[in-house]
Nucleic acid binder design. Structure first.
Lengths: 174, 174
DNA sequence: AGCACCATCACGCAGCGTCATCGTAA
DNA sequence: ATTACGATGACGCTGCGTGATGGTGC
């Protein structure tokens, strides 16, 4: 064993099997194969028996693909991104194209974060509004009785989501 | 016209057509119908000619569904949430179930926000690393020359994503 | 009678999951 | 020879988009 080098797989040729790629990147076999067919991973060399063998660089690619997917890039977007540099005549041009796309995605991600944060706020407000209900004594004509509940009526405000989930009368659209 | 009441649609019976529902909630006709078939909107009354007519409360429901979908929740998740109250015998029990689910959702949403923020950070770092390249003078043997670029080598660190996108040698998996 | 509106099939799409059946690797 | 691992179809799923074709509302 050459010292100071942890082999990524256990093959001596430094190639990775489909399964190793999958395990090292939180993907599945199916996903790795799908990405290869889709052209996101470069055509793997095959063993004599037909098994895919990926050079180790492809692992970094696969991991990046996973992150870009999580960020909402489509398969096609990603293919474009990965090919951009090779399809532009100069580095300056390629960089501008890539920067634009990243900018656009960043904006979309920020927007998505904002939406999620708003929703989180509404969920919290809903939780607060209904938290008093866990101590509610049984009532004969539940669930209609909640419409006349004094405790709920005394609340400063009932978020729209709570009104809908609790099936209160007059849930007004916002 | 009874005063002080802005009718939601323009029908005098206060019911909303599929199209009105769609327009008032940023959905499409198809989506409204789909949600009804999926049981997210309660079976609409039909006109003599077969057109759906929704009571105005359903609009608040539809809007809530839109928000939950935007946050990434599945149709089934949403159906469960919406039906919870009616399927439990007491308010206290229903409230506990709903609170649990909201708690779980909140946690999931927080987790998603965290992931997206991490990604945003990586996107920004990538943008920064490549932003200098937009001024790169043409070079005869682009794109290979980037591997020996002095400017890139001088950077404190090159994020993995940039290494992959820029096809630099030795992009090591993380 | 005209025009916008709505209904119901029905097919299509991404991005894989999930068998089933079979060949490989060591 | 065993046992885990991988390959190749092929069909399934979600959440709608997108026609086509024909009836409604007013």
């Amino acid at each position: 064993l050459p010292e100071g080098e942890k082999p990524a797989g256990r093959r001596q040729d430094g190639l990775l099997t489909t399964g190793e790629m999958a395990r090292l990147s939180d993907a599945t076999l199916r996903t790795v194969r799908f990405y290869e067919e889709a052209g996101l991973l470069r055509p793997a060399v095959r063993s004599a028996g037909g098994h895919r063998l990926f050079p180790k660089d492809e692992l970094a690619r696969l991991q990046l693909i996973g992150e870009l997917r999580a960020a909402g890039f489509s398969i096609e977007d990603i293919r474009d991104l990965l090919e951009t540099k090779l399809q532009r005549p100069t580095g300056a041009e390629a960089a501008r194209v890539i920067l634009d796309r990243i900018e656009a995605r960043s904006r979309a991600v920020r927007e998505r974060i904002r939406i999620l944060q708003d929703l989180l706020g509404e969920l919290e407000a809903t939780r607060e509004a209904l938290s008093g209900c866990t101590g509610c004594q049984g009532h004969p004509n539940y669930p209609e009785c909640c419409n006349d509940c004094e405790r709920l009526a005394a609340l400063e405000e009932i978020p729209g989501a709570a009104g809908v989930l609790w099936h209160l009368r007059d849930c007004r659209p916002r």
